Structure formats: structure tokens, C-alpha cells
Computed example of a mutant assay.
Amino acid sequence: MIEINNLVKRYGNLVALDHLNLNIHEGEIFGLLGPNGSGKTTAINCMLALLKYDKGTIRIMGEEMRPDNYKIKQQIGIVLQNVAVFDELTVYENIDYFCGLYIKDKTKRRHLVEEAIQFVGLEDYVRVRPKKLSGGLLRRLNIACGIAHKPKLIILDEPTVAVDPQSRNKILEGIQKLNRQGSTIIYTSHYMEEVEQICTRIAIIDHGRSIAVGTKEELKNMIKTGETITIEAIALEQKHLNDIQQLPHIFELSYHEQILTLRCTGAEHNLIRVLNYLQEQHIPFGRVFSELPTLNDVFLEITGKQLRD
């Protein structure tokens, strides 16, 4: 569906995209992750031919993407993070307007608009203007405007920002339904659990480069952390901490306010070894947790934990 090879985009001395390579297959929900300033938005704008780039190639649906390639642009739907609708128009009129940019036949467009309204669950709000909608309903209107013309490729940039859990669940279910109906989807979000829930493959980009690509299982196998053990309400002396640190497969230990956190490689019986040691030393403790790595763990280990502007 999308093939990006050695894409370079510079803003003066700043290199926003540094020989970026990405391949997105037809039928995927492809997660695009990266810290602030990593190049995600620049990459999307280049895909859409909204930005000129310095080097590289972009092919969408087998054709080179150019500003005047309207045949390809008609098959793309875009839902941006900032809601982009007209306050002067009703819900129905907004969806009809954006659909009309692609579909000129009025009869066909009417069916598509009604289908989009049903798809996002806005049947009771067709005559309401955007200012009267809640944040969740406004997000759903934004999605309807971007997908009413039934595009083959849909780009969703942070579509669930600042919405309630019910609206978020409705949006995620809708994205998966769009995918089942044949749309390829590019999904960006800072909510790692959403990406882990719906994306078939994920790319993490940083400093304008693709640094990891794969399924969530493949990405988790790329990092050192295989298990995180947390033990609460435990009083430990420095000798105990030194002993536990020396146990096999433990590579990071933290102890704060009687909470012990251990990061271990993906070996078996890590928890048993720790509990056996505590039993031998007659050390009482409270609750114990053992967690497998999440996509958030992968993201932080690959891109670093320092704050970004």
C-alpha cells in the first residue's frame, strides 16, 4: 500500500527525516509511534504530498505520490488530531461537504453520508451544530468527515485525544470495523494500550529514522526486559538488595518506600528465585506482581526515558 525509501526532509540545518524507510501492507492497521519531534507528522505530510522532501521516493498503491496525483488522493481519508469541521454547518452538512470533495453524484453521496452517520452513531445529532457537541461526539464527527467517501487508505492522527472511555471504545471499534471492510489504516497515538490493542504491525521512529518495526510480539522480543517483578510492603537492608541484585537474570533493581521493583530478562522461574531468597532470609512482604513487558516498556527502552520538547 505504501512504500517509502530513503526519505530525507531538512528544515535548514535540522534533519526532520533521515533516510526513513517504511513499508505498509494492504489490509493492515499500522501503528506509527515516536516521541515528540521524532518525524511522525513530517512523514505523514510527505506521504500526502503536502511537503516537498529533499531525497527519496514515496509510492502509494503502486504509484509515485505527487501533489497533482488526484487519482491516489481521492482514495485517501485523513482524520487529524485537531478537529477540522465547520461550526456554521450541521453534523449532516459537514459530512456532506467533505464527502462532496470526492463524490459529485448527489444520490451516491447521500447514501454515503447516511452510512457514515450510522457508522459513528450520530443519528440523533444530524441537525446539531458542532459547538453543541461533546468532545467525544465531535471526535466521531471528525472521523465521519474523513471516511465518508470510503477511502482505501485512512490516516488517523491521535483520534481519541481527550475523549471519555465510552467514546474511545466506540472509536476503536469503528477503526477495526473500517479495517474489516477493506481499508488500510495508519494509526498514530500516544496511548500505547490502544496501539497494542488494534494494530497488526507497529513502527517506532525517532530522530527521523525507523528504529524498530514489527508485530507487538516481535517488538517485545527486541528489548532486554522479559518480566517486571514488584513486591510491596517489604523492609530490606542494603545487604539484601545486594544479594537480590546478584540473582540470575536480574539486570535492574529499584527500592523506594518499601516497594521493590526488579526488571529481569525473559528467563523462567525469576519470581520463584526471588521468593525463595526472601523465605530463606525470613523477610515478610505484602503483595507481589509479575508482569510481562508492554508496548510502553518497548517504547521507553528503545527511545529512552528522557523528556522531549
Rank of each mutant, 00 (worst) to 15 (best):
H269V: 03
Q74F: 00
K220T: 07
V85Y: 07
K220D: 01
I283H: 13
M65Y: 09
G77M: 02
G39H: 06
P293E: 09
L50H: 09
H249S: 12
L275E: 01
E26G: 07
D164F: 11
Q245R: 14
E194A: 11
N69T: 02
I202G: 00
I60K: 13
L253F: 08
E237Q: 13
Y70R: 05
N6Q: 13
I4W: 01
A212H: 11
L260F: 00
Q238A: 05
L133N: 08
H282N: 15
D124Y: 11
E3P: 02
I223D: 12
N5Q: 13
C99T: 05
E227K: 15
V85N: 01
V213R: 07
I234M: 06
Q197C: 11
I29P: 02
T303R: 12
L307G: 00
K40T: 06
R201H: 15
K40W: 07
M61R: 11
Y92E: 10
L32H: 05
I143A: 03
N142Q: 10
K216C: 09
G304A: 14
L247D: 03
L236I: 05
H19T: 11
Y53A: 03
Q118L: 10
K40D: 01
K73S: 10
F98Q: 02
P248N: 07
L33M: 14
P284V: 06
T41H: 04
L89W: 03
V79M: 04
I244W: 00
K71N: 11
E194G: 00
R209F: 11
C145A: 08
V15C: 10
R180H: 14
E26C: 03
P151N: 10
M65E: 02
H282G: 01
K106S: 12
M47D: 07
R139M: 05
K104G: 00
L260Q: 06
T230Y: 09
A235E: 15
I234H: 05
E193I: 14
Q181W: 08
L295R: 12
C46K: 06
N242P: 03
N270V: 13
E64C: 02
Y191P: 04
F119V: 06
S134G: 06
Q238Y: 09
L32S: 02
K40E: 09
L178P: 05
D87K: 11
Q258P: 00
E88A: 10
L14T: 14
H25R: 14
D18Y: 03
V288P: 04
I250H: 01
T261V: 09
I2W: 04
C99W: 02
Q281T: 06
L278C: 07
H207V: 04
N94I: 06
N13I: 14
C264T: 13
R129Y: 15
K239G: 04
E123S: 15
D87E: 15
V163N: 08
N242W: 01
K9S: 05
K71V: 10
L172Y: 02
L260E: 01
K220G: 04
A116T: 00
I29W: 03
A144S: 05
R10S: 13
A144Q: 00
E301L: 14
M65V: 02
R209V: 10
H249P: 03
H249R: 08
L219D: 03
Q166T: 09
T294M: 13
